[in-house]
């Protein structure tokens, strides 16, 4: 790693700010529609909850947020899959 934390943040600040604004605007759009037409249901509600969990990961500490986010959006792995599939 050749760059300092300060230099990376300075370089990425506007980029991250723009991405966060897009997410905020997406959530606003969902909430506006929900106030007109009713709350989320079924899979859409599950997806919204998952996105909330993702934001909690972003707010947490550690240099492995991308990996934890990927796992949040992944199906579980069962080591017994070969037995279950009889393969």
């Amino acid at each position: 790693m050749n760059r300092t934390a300060n230099s990376i943040l300075d370089e990425k600040f506007l980029d991250v700010r723009a991405k966060l604004l897009e997410v905020a605007a997406d959530f606003d759009r969902i909430d506006r529609a929900a106030s007109d037409e009713g709350p989320l249901s079924g899979q859409s509600r599950d997806h919204r909850e998952r996105l909330g969990e993702a934001i909690n990961i972003l707010r947490s500490d550690g240099a492995d947020r991308a990996e934890r986010l990927q796992k949040l959006f992944s199906r579980d792995y069962e080591s017994s899959w070969r037995k279950e599939m009889q393969i």
């Binding site: 990927q70 796992k71 959006f73 992944s74 199906r75 792995y77 080591s79 899959w81 070969r82």
Partner: peptide, 14 residues
Amino acid sequence: HLEDKYQGTRMILD
């Protein structure tokens, strides 16, 4: 891809 990658990669490695 996407939500199937983690499980599928582990199955392949197995």
